[in-house]
Nucleic acid binder design. Sequence first.
DNA 1: TCACAAATTTGAATCCATTACAAAATTATA
DNA 2: TATAATTTTGTAATGGATTCAAATTTGTGA
Lengths: 138, 138
Amino acid sequence: MDLVVKHLMDHGIRPSVQRVAIMRYLMEHRTHPTVEDIYRDLHDEMPTLSKTTIYNTLSLLGEKDALSLLTIDSKNIHYDGDMSPHAHFLCRCCHRIFDVALPLGLDSDGMMPVGFSIEHSHVYYDGVCNMCSGKGQE
Amino acid sequence: MDLVVKHLMDHGIRPSVQRVAIMRYLMEHRTHPTVEDIYRDLHDEMPTLSKTTIYNTLSLLGEKDALSLLTIDSKNIHYDGDMSPHAHFLCRCCHRIFDVALPLGLDSDGMMPVGFSIEHSHVYYDGVCNMCSGKGQE
DNA sequence: TCACAAATTTGAATCCATTACAAAATTATA
DNA sequence: TATAATTTTGTAATGGATTCAAATTTGTGA
């Protein structure tokens, strides 16, 4: 079975054409897109796709933990289809968001006060990326 | 000299009446307020204070690293006048934001790819707080 | 103290991401 | 095939954030 369809069904989501297209986009593009990005890029292959559907779908996928919301950028919500543990870096020059390794020792169960239960955790950095600093490879 | 005035001047910000009032509010209220919160609460003592001034001031304070922007909540930007290192926890029930200890081992300089420089880092959790879970003290 | 320049504040208008909503289309069920 | 349930769609509305120019306040020098 298609990996994207399986991913949706594993999270209790009925795999409509639109939902599969949006989830596939997220899984194949590791760019942490916004709603606008998704709409623009999917418009060619699905001219009738509406923004409301994208909002609805991303909201549903988020509730079911099939994707993760990145609030790293105060201007727009970004979405990430990769649920494996990793941190994010936002470049203040080019505004791209990069995946970076999680710092070690982040298992912080012991640090939380009694009665607090963590459902999701996010580690965000901002600064300047290797391309904007001119110090990166290439 | 007043601590708030000193804080502003230490960050190269001229301490106008409005700026001092807003910075003082942030330093005295550890509630991570939004623009709306600040406006509502300062309105009594400063009826002429405009929202634009609050936006301008928070933007200036942010640029000068005199406060920190919390993007933990996708609905609104929250502001924090406490620049000491700590993490944040957003309760999905009551939507309050709590200060929590930073996990150990978060010094992640070694983890970043060559050419990436970190200017700010944030650790965000969400889940259920002690009051909403009914398992807290009191 | 006064006049002028610079900085700051203000409110109205605007922008734009997100949400609400109800009709239309699609899919599931009997 | 008929009916119900689900999903999609476009339009309208919402509301946080920004723009902008006028008004006010503050700083500077004579």
